[in-house]
Computed example of a mutant assay.
Amino acid sequence: MKLRTFLGLLGLAASAQLAAPVAWADTYPSRAVRIIVPYGTGGGSDILARQIGARLQTIWGQGVAVDNRAGASGNIGTEAVVRSPADGYTLLLQNSTMVVNPAVAGKLNYDPEKDLTPIMLLGLTPIALAAHQSTNIKNLKDLVEYSKANPTALNYGSCGVGTPQHFVMELVKQKSGVKATNVGYKGCAPALTDVVGGQVQLAILSANLIAPHIKTGKLYGIGVSTASRYQLMPQVPTFEEQGLKPLDFSIWYALMGPAKMPPEVVARIYADVQKVLAEPAIKENLSGAGVEPLSGNGAELSKLIKVDLARYAQLAKSANIKAE
Score class of each variant (00 low, 15 high):
residue 21 P to A: 13
residue 21 P to F: 02
residue 21 P to H: 09
residue 23 A to C: 12
residue 23 A to V: 15
residue 23 A to I: 14
residue 23 A to K: 14
residue 23 A to G: 14
residue 24 W to Y: 08
residue 25 A to I: 03
residue 25 A to C: 05
residue 25 A to P: 03
residue 26 D to M: 14
residue 26 D to C: 10
residue 27 T to E: 12
residue 28 Y to T: 09
residue 28 Y to P: 04
residue 29 P to M: 06
residue 29 P to A: 09
residue 30 S to L: 07
residue 30 S to I: 08
residue 30 S to F: 10
residue 31 R to P: 10
residue 31 R to C: 08
residue 32 A to M: 10
residue 32 A to W: 06
residue 32 A to G: 13
residue 33 V to L: 12
residue 33 V to I: 13
residue 34 R to M: 09
residue 34 R to E: 14
residue 35 I to R: 04
residue 35 I to M: 15
residue 36 I to R: 15
residue 36 I to V: 15
residue 36 I to W: 09
residue 38 P to L: 01
residue 38 P to A: 01
residue 40 G to A: 13
residue 40 G to Q: 07
residue 42 G to H: 01
residue 42 G to C: 05
residue 43 G to S: 05
residue 43 G to L: 05
residue 45 S to R: 02
residue 45 S to N: 12
residue 45 S to F: 00
residue 46 D to F: 05
residue 46 D to C: 07
residue 47 I to F: 00
residue 47 I to V: 13
residue 47 I to Q: 03
residue 48 L to E: 06
residue 49 A to F: 06
residue 49 A to S: 10
residue 50 R to F: 02
residue 51 Q to G: 02
residue 51 Q to R: 09
residue 53 G to S: 06
residue 53 G to N: 02
residue 54 A to S: 10
residue 54 A to W: 04
residue 55 R to Y: 07
residue 55 R to P: 01
residue 55 R to C: 01
residue 56 L to C: 06
residue 56 L to D: 04
residue 56 L to Y: 02
residue 57 Q to Y: 06
residue 57 Q to R: 14
residue 57 Q to F: 07
residue 58 T to L: 13
residue 58 T to R: 15
residue 58 T to S: 15
residue 58 T to H: 11
residue 59 I to F: 05
residue 59 I to N: 08
residue 60 W to N: 04
residue 61 G to R: 12
residue 61 G to Q: 08
residue 61 G to T: 01
residue 61 G to E: 10
residue 62 Q to E: 14
residue 64 V to L: 14
residue 64 V to C: 11
residue 66 V to K: 01
residue 67 D to H: 14
residue 67 D to R: 09
residue 68 N to P: 04
